[in-house]
Design a protein around this nucleic acid. Sequence first.
DNA 1: CCCCTTTCGTCGACGATCGACCGAAGTTAC
DNA 2: GTAACTTCGGTCGATCGTCGACGAAAGGGG
Lengths: 383, 383
Amino acid sequence: MLALISRGAAGTRADLARLTGMARSTVAQRVEALIEHGLVEETGAGASTGGRPPRLLRLDTARNCVLGVDLGATHCRVALMDIGGTILAASEDPVQIGQGPLSVLEHVDTRMHELLAEAGRPLETLKAVGIGVPGPVEFATGRPVAPPIMPGWHEYPVPEFFTGRYPVEVLVDNDVNVLALGERRFAYPDSAHLLFVKIGTGIGCGVVVDGHLHRGAQGGAGDIGHIRVPDAADALCRCGNTGCLEAVAGGAALAARLTAAGVPAATGRDVVALVNQGDGTALRLVREGGRIIGDVLAGLVNFFNPEVIVVGGVMARVHEPLLAGMREVIYQRSLPLATHRLTVVPSRSGEEGGVLGAGRLAIDHVLAPDHVNRALSPPTGAT
Amino acid sequence: MLALISRGAAGTRADLARLTGMARSTVAQRVEALIEHGLVEETGAGASTGGRPPRLLRLDTARNCVLGVDLGATHCRVALMDIGGTILAASEDPVQIGQGPLSVLEHVDTRMHELLAEAGRPLETLKAVGIGVPGPVEFATGRPVAPPIMPGWHEYPVPEFFTGRYPVEVLVDNDVNVLALGERRFAYPDSAHLLFVKIGTGIGCGVVVDGHLHRGAQGGAGDIGHIRVPDAADALCRCGNTGCLEAVAGGAALAARLTAAGVPAATGRDVVALVNQGDGTALRLVREGGRIIGDVLAGLVNFFNPEVIVVGGVMARVHEPLLAGMREVIYQRSLPLATHRLTVVPSRSGEEGGVLGAGRLAIDHVLAPDHVNRALSPPTGAT
DNA sequence: CCCCTTTCGTCGACGATCGACCGAAGTTAC
DNA sequence: GTAACTTCGGTCGATCGTCGACGAAAGGGG
């Protein structure tokens, strides 16, 4: 509770009392506990407004950091962040996730140690690790569940790999969920209902309901890439079905269609490059892809009524035509009540969105009320 | 909290202590407060299991009742229920909602008094009123928002109509939300994520996330009737668009298509009757409608990953062919992870689902922890 | 230099909860 | 029939968290 307020809103004891409605004495007591615990520090005095100047509080970023890990199909990004969310050190290298968990996680482990050393942060300051992986994950256990592009990872207990190596909790989630979380925390802290649509090779969606990630009954929520779209019965999808959204409007699909139209492109990245070069066919195709995605999103807007739809992923680098196509259809096909205050915006976090979100997952865990309370009162529990 | 447990799970002080993990003394204290407050009563002793027999507790159904009101386009159902959820008295009569709020609510008011008298319950035992209306509602204020089939109701403050007449709170919500709530409470108390699909003249959907109704940013969530479906560009919808789900698979649409196929039918009700008479064309059409709805639901299953989809509304009276069509498509088009434990079932509450749900909305309010706590400690608050 | 404002810490009071103890009311063993 | 034992329920002191009031600290304004 206090940790939540401390995390940016306002940083003096009096502010906290005003915002939480609690008595000043209570606030002081708890702040002291947090300082004792090392999560909060005092930083000099602020400007007086006519009376005694307040003592400023802020998160103790020097003594608390987390690691964010963004695993993609072919890359691995690791970032060391303090609990304020600023990056202290980061790495990026090509890693084939298909090499299996042992090899990949060993690599991650090495990078994690390197970054800690590079930033000069001792291991004791590390408080949590967040990992985003490109596939469905049972969040409670941190195990990937039948991930299509992660051979060898099925049911692999990722957090257990790190127990023994690091004395902190390891949180694993789907990469799109992680992106949604990061975007919400960084850019739309006040939006209760948010969708993060990632348009990369495939298409996925992170769902934030009432400020919390919605993972669904089996942790499989947000898989919009395989929703069927009209007039696409001939589009074969890697999932085995036909007419899936991502088989028509995903980065790979757009590249294939562009190639078929006479403009060679192998990946979504190529399509993006062509659009940036001013290629008319690519531009038209991207906009058309936006319309198709918009058609699906229009349905989801009616169903879910979000406040914000954030579009990210590789293809969002050409967000002008993409979002234009999407908005065109969404505002036409969705009900006025639902579109009234809906905004469709490109992601503000670029390539680093994954690590930022993963780090944010870890930070949220460190600052979570129950976690903090548990840490503050170790002598309790046992009878 | 205690009220929640009291509401069915297990009814003795010892049970409560076991289930909540609280000390027996605390439980006893709070139970006493609840008895004092009149929400709970003691009913004799239970069977001994080797020691002193427990004193049984249950909700004081004699001194606490609520009213549920189900307003449809052409009907008005009112039911008096005790807070255990059993109906004490009910009424049903044809009412045109288009006559406007004053006329309709006056009628409701009369019925409410009649039912209280009929059941011999004094006004003091009434604790809350729940109302379901056929259109979007801003739940916090109880005002309909631009309801398509409720002329004159836009922004009308329904709860205010009853203040002065009844000394209790009045809760107003969309009829589909109310249905979803009722179904969850009565039939699937353990399902965190549930969809209630109502297929009547139109098509709507109530969304339960994590046990709570999801109303969306503008209270417009669940409006799946106007999601676009493939190969239906010629189907004109009352919303002004074309190709909407309910313009193809709603009760009215099915009747129209059946008529066009040479079998006269004016409403969804007629279609149901024809199916029950064994009409092959009607049967085929309903099953086809189920497939079309299933196509949309398949997308929502991927996106939302519910545990249960409940199908209600007039058309659900022929749920065999309807659900067959729906399941056919859902299990084919949705991902295995999402369909793994998904069940698609007909609503267990029939015609009375609306009033039951409305009553449940009221009961939930009466038993809500914050409400009870406020009631238990009246001398607090003011400084 | 005095008074006011704002902030911060401390102290006693209050309420909620807990654990322990005891009485109540049965069953079971002898 | 009586004595254990078992299970429930109520009471009492102790503890913890929170609150409100008071006073001290630290600055601005007349």
